[in-house]
Amino acid sequence: MNYKQKGFKTAGILAIAAASVALVVPAVKSQSGSIIKIDGSSTVYPITEAVAEEYQIENKGATQVTVGVSGTGGGFKKFCSEDEAVRTDISDASRPIKEEEMAMCEAAGVEYIEIPVAYDAITVVANPENPIESMTVEELAQIWDPESEGEITNWSQVNPEWPDAEFVLYGPGADSGTFDGFTDKINGDEGASRTDYTPSEDDNVLVQGVSSDPNALGYFGYSYYEENQDKLKAIAIDAGEGAVVPSVETVRDGSYAPLSRPIYIYVNAQAAEKPEVAEFVEFYLTNAEGLVPEVGSVPLTPEEYQEGIARFQNGETGTTAAK
């Protein structure tokens, strides 16, 4: 009996101690107010996070913003959910909404306003020691075509002027929006890619791979190139009007084609009538130009942000970008 009491007492004291440490801090820091729920693409996430952070500093916690990262597709699943408890107010998307997602939203009675917030430029990178400076879209397509698998393995097979050496390919995995975008623009069919390359969902792994192998070629989002310019070389892309290197200027004026594309937020039209959501979206669009470069992405032009604000204020629902 004595043993038992003692044992349970010790356990009890420790449990109470652990619980109070975990529970007292929330008591000090928690605040109340309305919540704006955002979820979606990991490409848009750093921008939305920066805006949400600034917005909450600005309004001192009166409105709380939460941001999740479940991918563009996963984000739309929540955005167009039948279940109101799960439904998000805003969805981050690195590509326009797809037809089946539109159908899902329609079924749930969700109308949305599509607003571009920045550019994402898919950057083709090589090791700085690689003599190749530019590629045409056709050459890129030949390297990454599904039919090239096991057939085209040497630079000189693609272009006789290029070195006689085997290349090693790096790219994002098939779940990534960057993969969808690249295969769509280069191979002409979303998802069509050779598979004998090193895939990784973590772009830092791709950076590591390309920067340590002189014969490596890879592609990923512009921000990863911008942060690692000392270790990587961006390949200029020639879509028929001369080779263009990706940079803030060439992406903004549209000359870096076809690998640059806008990324979006989708705002639930019903939620947009709530004053705090409207305030947040307008805060987003007026501050994006300053915040977007801070997280390594390419901002839209001021006019394009103005158009976005106008679109939002007029409540123009639907998509203009989707195919």
Binding site: L23, A27, K29, Y45, E53, G68
Partner: peptide, 17 residues
Amino acid sequence: ITIGALTFIAFLPKSPF
């Protein structure tokens, strides 16, 4: 993540006391 945990959240749950 599957059930919907967030990544950015700048407030804490309501106090249990």
